[in-house]
């Protein structure tokens, strides 16, 4: 393996970690609510702006601005669930009764609203978030990486691990998994499915916003910055298996590395196409993804 290959592998894995942080929230929402949130990228965008403006305009230290961005994303998730999503399934215990195509329209509308709202209120200009560390270059053998990118990747891994642990072992995590498996059954067992939905939307919004904040020194905040994480997240959720958190993590790393090597050894022009080609192959030969279930409740 040459020096550049090591460089590509490391950078690909780091990119994959960021993809995972973006995609887990989307995967969770699909797992619980069985809908695709088309405004997911805009939660990322709001987090990037929240972190940057809190730190730059208010002068708040970056280590406080970072969790505050998570809180802003979580609050936006709560607001979205209570005002836009709840009316879609209120009173229904089975997803078969719910008109989930409305959710597509509602979240798509929310996405357009948020992009244009930020464009008009904050302005069209891009903002670069302040880095967590000022070290611009860290040398690790053949790999040269910015200090912020390295630290951000470490934080992203920690956040992903904590999220996975919470879902697996915490009280609310177990309830979320129960609702994910069978909403009616969970409801009959006394689980508050509406509350589970709120928690998932808040967690999803918070994680996407946190990813936006963490990456804002690398990918400058702008009104349309959410389009990129949204598209990557949709691909990852399908590759990993819809609703599967471990699947989303593995698919993210896989996609990051494939894109990194493909961009150099095939063409940078087709970098974003590699994910779409993988998506088509999976839909043809393994539509349930890496860890997904073969069928859906009807």
């Amino acid at each position: 393996m040459s020096g550049i290959d090591v460089d590509l592998a490391v950078n690909g894995l780091i990119t994959g970690v960021f993809y995972a942080l973006m995609a887990i929230g989307l995967s969770l929402i699909f797992g619980i609510l069985k809908i695709v949130n088309f405004a997911h990228g805009e939660f990322y965008m709001v987090g990037a702006y929240a972190y940057t403006l809190i730190a730059l305009a208010l002068g708040v230290p970056v280590w406080i601005a970072l969790p505050l961005a998570f809180v802003v994303g979580a609050l936006l998730g709560w607001l979205t669930e209570r005002t836009l999503m709840r009316p879609l399934y209120a009173g229904y215990t089975s997803w078969g009764l719910m008109r989930d195509e409305y959710a597509v329209i509602v979240t798509f509308g929310l996405s357009l609203f948020l992009i244009n709202f930020v464009d008009k209120v904050i302005g069209p200009y891009a903002y670069r978030g302040p880095p967590l560390v000022e070290t611009s270059r860290v040398v690790l053998g053949p790999v040269l990486i910015s200090g912020h990118r390295l630290l951000a990747a470490g934080i992203a891994i920690a956040v992903i691990a904590v999220t996975a642990a919470l879902i697996k072992w915490s009280f609310w995590g177990q309830q979320i998994r129960a609702v994910s498996q069978n909403r009616l059954g969970a409801s009959l067992a006394g689980i508050d499915t509406a509350k589970a939905s709120v928690i998932v939307f808040m967690l999803s919004g918070g994680l996407a916003a946190f990813a936006g904040a963490l990456l804002s020194p690398v990918i400058n905040a702008s009104p349309d910055v959410g389009i990129f994480p949204a598209i990557k997240s949709y691909i990852i959720v399908v590759l990993g298996g819809m609703g599967s958190v471990p699947g989303a993590i593995i698919a993210s790393l896989f996609l990051g590395v494939i894109e990194s090597f493909g961009a150099v050894y095939i063409s940078f022009q087709y970098r974003d196409a590699f994910g779409l080609i993988l998506l088509m192959l999976f839909l043809l030969f393994r539509p349930q993804g890496l860890f997904g279930e073969k069928g859906r409740e009807v």
Binding site: L8, F228, E259, S260, Q269
Partner: peptide, 15 residues
């Protein structure tokens, strides 16, 4: 030529 919608150009810059 790079995609103007792309957000990460490292694979093009590393070589």
């Amino acid at each position: 030529t790079l995609d103007r919608a792309s957000k990460d150009f490292l694979p093009a810059i590393l070589p």
